[in-house]
Write a protein that binds this DNA or RNA. Sequence first.
RNA 1: GCCGACGUAGCUCAGCUGGUAGAGCACUUCACUCGUAAUGAAGGGGUCCCCGGUUCGAGUCCGGGCGUCGGCUCCA
Length: 628
Amino acid sequence: MRVILPDSSELELPAGATGLDAARAIGPKLAEQAVLVRSNGSIRDLRLPLTDGERIQILTTRDKDDPDALYVLRHSAAHLLAEAVRRLYPGVKIAIGPPIDNGFYYDFEFPESIGEDALERIEEEIRRELAEGRAWERRETTPDDARRLFEEQDERYKVELVDTAEGEISLYTQGDFTDLCRGPHLQDSSPIKAIKLTGLAGAYWRGDERNTQLTRIYGTAFYSPEDLERHLERLEEARRRDHRRLGPQLDLFHFSERSPGSPLWHPKGMALWQELENIRLRENARRGYLEVKTPLIYDSETFWTSGHFPKYEDLMFKLDIEGRQWAMKSMNCPGHMLLFGSRPRSYRELPLRYAEPAPLHRNELPGTLHGLLRVRHVTQDDAHIFCTEEQIQDEIRDVVDYARYVYNLFGMSASAELATRPENRVGTDQEWDRTEAALIEALRLNEIPYTIAAGEGAFYGPKIDLFMDDALGRKWQMGTIQLDSQMPSRFGLKYVGSDNTEHDLYVVHRALYGSYERFIGIMTEHFGGAFPFWLAPVQVRVIPVGESHREAAGRLRARLDEEGYRADVDERDETVGKRIRDAELEKVPKVVVWGDRESEDALAVRDRGGSQSNVGLAELLRELDSLR
RNA sequence: GCCGACGUAGCUCAGCUGGUAGAGCACUUCACUCGUAAUGAAGGGGUCCCCGGUUCGAGUCCGGGCGUCGGCUCCA
């Protein structure tokens, strides 16, 4: 048989030859360094046979940054971890240990719980294994044999995996440790030049909280120590940009133990918030949304009607006052339903777009709170679009267009995920067929790249989740667009058509920032706190050189205020150098130093980062205007 | 909610095996009146997260609670 190599040359091999055989046929060095075979985008163990006419690529230790090469390396590293843990902790049960983004993990059930200090000991043991060297041997077997093997070892999770496995069963053996595994694996452990255990966490067996909780050990591995070093530096950079660190540092917000999960916004943080709000108000007006305001608190009956209580009662803040049950709203839809239903509605009013940036309260579980990204006081840039079935397509198309416009303002591009009907849902299958199709069509019309998340929709309708990539290449979920015919019907809402009869309504729930809190958190990390001029909480700082320059500095600041900029004066009794340094640390985009040498015709302007220029006031104002 | 770690001045952190709390920055005052990333000196500031226990004695050890962090689960 023959296989095709990346340079399109063909290689003649005996029938049944494996990837490793192919590597050997090309050269001994390649065979030695080979780690896996890639064919049509999928990866395969070196020990598996190739098929005639196949186009193959052999990845080696030199492809040290290739995601597939790292995948196989880390997969093998996970097995070393399992071997080490089994040696150190007799009686431990092993579960699963896959590679993941940036590393790997392995789940264990320990006879007694372990702490973080155990990681060092385990890492030591892995290093010992690496020093000794391990080779992986692959073997295929029958489910019966595999079950017998793991029953003998009392590895009940492995037995369960064998019983639910599809297709052939394969085993990998290294030293005296044999694991159920699909592969692929390295030939031996020599390419693993750097390995580090990074954390310890609880994780449920098969990700289901009804199952026993296992102990998950996280780690990462690389083809070179330098790569591990770089990885750790990237983590350090992410830590520096962490909004939970930058927020208080830049005086944007803080959290108090008196109200866990609810940020207290400082004036500078509110400057960011107001910029977002200005964009929202301006665009809403342009795009035909109507601003409304509805109550924060409703009687419990409202949430039974909306269908939220059966599912979310435990996650809502409830009040018992004068014998009546109330709850703080955790979404705006019920209020907007009541508003729409306040009188009969004609088709002439549709589509009707209600917008309300209201604070919502959700009693998120303590363990899930995470800075601004998961809060209990959440402010959604919410809107509900009431429309007819015929209008759905256009409305969703316009919302996606709106989202794209907003994300572009922040220098980000959008992608989407379509979440389809969940198991636990209301409504008929026909309704779901129609609504899902409408969303797909809207995405197609907008040419937004999307993936499908089967079963992830809200209980009342399918949704589009909008994503953005940030400056560090991380993907964040931002807004959401949900189509719903359930909520209007639960509230008994109809509209009168041109035929003078009542028709069913559709509602599009949408938020583009998602929430102000989350959006500001993500922007803080995206910009690393160095917000663009138009967004910066302090846009211009004026520094008078000496006491005698304070008056002139104050006049300049007043002029900038008048022009609508956020400016301040640093008249502290500190050296110019110190005040420049503080402005840099606060990431103020423009600093104007005013001393004896300055006048309105000659200002000393310093940009964030250090470059300086001398310009007249008129010229400065022109430049600032272009940055708005 | 679950697993693990952590909680000392406004912030970042030190405090050995239990003996009665410290640094840098920030803040206040004074001096200096300063030219593009830290002027100097002095001073104020702490129920060592909370409650209980062990002990002659607890920031330190033990138990419970709260909060934060890394994950899991959840995310209308």
